[in-house]
Amino acid sequence: MASPLVAVRNLRTLFPVGAHSVFRAPATFVHAVDDVTFDIDEGEALALVGESGCGKSTLALTLLGLERPTTGSIDFAGQEMTALKGSELKAARRNMQMIFQDPYESLNPLMRVGEIVAEPLIVHKLANARSDREARVRAALEAAGLKPPEVYLERYPYQLSGGQRQRVAIAAALVLEPRLLLADEPVSMLDVSIRAEIINLLAELKQTRKISILFITHDLGTVTAVADRIAVMYLGRIVELGRTADVLTQPRHPYTKALLSVTPAPNPRLRKERIILKGETPDPTRLPGGCRFAPRCPVAQPLCLASDPPLTALETGHTAACHFG
């Protein structure tokens, strides 16, 4: 079996909280990402699903090297990312690009589409000849479905629709021909009809270009069409990981079950019993002693408050962290 493109092992990113000065070490930490392990294969799409504050965006920023992990390792295409610095890190980053949630905010309003898409080439001093650069910008715009590219090159973001803006962001990510796309809630700000376009585009890039995708979202409904596997994250941990069909049809962790039950079904006849969890994700500075989900879990037992269940394999490629999974 070929080795995976990304291998994350026991990754931990902690943030110090509260007043810390030269004289006093911080007393508490936010466990943003806490002991996370997963792989992404070449040309595979992994969905990372969880509520806001579960650490999924921090995980993406850590992969990119914009946040320093506290411990753990990130192996990307055979290179240990956590050991890289300066120009080496910059060179490695060329192979992983990120798409952000809000296409209204993630594009500089004063730059033209052509400039935005060319920016990564300029930053990495690639394709320095003008004609070469223009050709690559056009190719990226076409790959992102903005055809013909001439129409868009001179436009400003405010002259485009939300879907077109997200395509520009995707083109700017594609122009470096990365091997991994980190898509942080790429469709949650878009209309339903445009969501479908962007999701189809990502699925197509995965198939035709063998680009791996880490698709970060809070909405299980949006990932079904593109993800090969789903990882469900709760309070910095992966609580369930498995093939998309397995997780959707046989969820093993009560949190996954609850998330699935509140994901709106596309038909009033499928209105189902919603498992609505009380409150919101607890304060990640004060973690409960046993299972992290126990305080909100509808089926928690005394055992759950006492001991933290490890991620255990249930069947091939399907793991869950629950005593009663």
């Binding site: 990119l64 993630s106 500089n108 962001a169």
Partner: peptide, 11 residues
């Protein structure tokens, strides 16, 4: 966000 994006690109 576009500043974070520029950082993510490697600027």
């Amino acid at each position: 966000r576009f500043v974070t994006r520029a950082r993510a690109v490697g600027a």
